[in-house]
Amino acid sequence: MANQNCPRSTQQAALLLLYNAKRLRKGDDGWQRRGNGTQAAVIDSAHFSEVYGKPRVKSIGPKLIPFLNTVCIYFILWLPSSEPSWFSALIKCLPILSLGIFLLAYSVSIGAMNSYSKRILLGLLFSAGGDVCLIWPQFFLHGMVMFGIAHLLYITAFGMRPLKLKIFLVFALLGGTLYFIMHPYLQEPFLYTVGIYTALICIMGWRALARVKLSSYGWSWTRAYSAIGAITFMVSDCTLAVDRFCMPLPYARAIVMGTYYTAQMLIALSIIDTSTDYGDDNLLWKKK
């Protein structure tokens, strides 16, 4: 069975061949002699990443500068929410648009954009649309719809394998408890839309956390980023929901926006080194 950790792009495959050829000439210990006298490579993925991955890792920081700058601008200006305007909408959604540009720049730098990255990018764009809608209170429901679509895109990106039903039960319990608490405060049309939205964000958290493998062999920081990002997103939305529908919370806006921008950044960072199209390979309905 093919190793799923092997790079799939032509560029990565060429680098791997060059890497192994150099090790062969140097008599590297990673090459082991078989019984028939031939030599076969033991692919040390950690060593390979160390040799060829450093330039890629170093290139991430500068690409995030626009996002960090726009987040600082949002908190420095701190435009009053009581005075909605298109300028406020632009300032609010600029960090998310910057993450979209980061994603595109990273994809261009590696010469490919897989289905996982495409779905995360679409999720960011719908999130930016939701940010614009939430500036005006009368469009709050429209904003929920936009963010609901973003969560659906993130769910399809994270995939449905492995299921890990125990994690699902935990998130179902959390979501059900939150909705039970908010239910007495909800009125039409939010009585049902909040329930649907709560289910979507809990499913997103479940699917993001289910992808994380704690073993040293299967550990991936990019999957950890998406899991932490999804949970942080849940904290942001829970704070917003309680503040809007139940009771005012101190520093609610700062908590909501701080956790929201952090969550989106972590989810965007999960595209790094996603050599496998998780959104395709992990779907339950994928044909064998």
Rank of each mutant, 00 (worst) to 15 (best):
L165G: 00
L209G: 03
K58R: 05
S275C: 00
F87G: 08
V256I: 13
Y251C: 10
L173S: 09
F48I: 00
S220L: 15
F140P: 04
S215T: 04
S98W: 14
I196V: 13
I271R: 00
F48W: 02
A227C: 02
L15I: 00
A199C: 15
R25E: 06
M182Q: 08
V132S: 04
L249S: 15
G100Q: 05
I96P: 09
V71W: 02
D131H: 01
K166S: 12
P248Y: 15
S59Q: 09
K22L: 13
T239Q: 05
L214W: 04
M1T: 01
P80S: 09
A208S: 06
L94P: 12
K166E: 11
G61E: 01
L99Q: 00
I203M: 14
A172Q: 14
G258Y: 12
S115W: 06
A210L: 08
S216Y: 02
R25D: 11
S220C: 05
E188Y: 15
F126S: 01
L163E: 13
V242L: 14
N3H: 14
L16F: 10
F171T: 06
C93R: 02
S98M: 07
R8F: 12
I203D: 03
Y52G: 00
G205Y: 04
S88A: 01
L103E: 01
E83G: 10
A46Q: 01
Y116P: 11
G229S: 02
L186V: 01
C93D: 10
V235K: 02
I181C: 07
V57Y: 10
P250T: 04
Q187T: 11
F171H: 01
L214G: 13
C93V: 11
E83Y: 13
S226Q: 03
D281M: 05
Y260R: 00
R207C: 15
R23L: 11
W86H: 14
D273V: 05
S236K: 01
L99G: 04
K166Y: 14
S127Q: 12
